[in-house]
């Protein structure tokens, strides 16, 4: 199978994530979309590592997993504290900061 197909798949996943961030209203779902984008990048890195025959891309994938895990810790802490205050995780209701 042509490995370029995996690049197309990763581009599709990245786009789904990118549009999901723009159109979904729940902070948790938006955050999941960001994670989807990171994993799409991982797939692209690993595929390019296979196509090009170097290991750098696979190493990057491990780093991204660690970074994504750290991001989950920070992100869920922030979303939890907002939820505890407002009883809602909707990003439309977070609208106090306006000019």
């Amino acid at each position: 199978m042509n490995p370029m197909n995996y690049i197309y798949l990763s581009a599709a996943l990245f786009s789904i994530g990118a549009f999901g961030v723009l159109f979904r209203r729940n902070a948790i779902v938006v955050f999941m979309c960001v994670e989807l984008m990171l994993n799409a990048a991982n797939l692209a890195f690993v595929t390019f590592a296979r196509i090009n025959g170097t290991l750098d891309g696979q190493v990057v994938a491990f780093f991204v997993m660690v970074v994504a895990a750290a991001e989950v810790v920070i992100g869920l802490a922030i979303i939890m504290s907002i939820f505890a205050t407002r009883r809602s995780a909707s990003i439309d209701e977070a609208n106090l900061l306006r000019s």
Partner: peptide, 8 residues
């Protein structure tokens, strides 16, 4: 709210 917006 600033933290949430900045983070996302």
């Amino acid at each position: 709210e600033a933290a949430l917006k900045y983070f996302l």
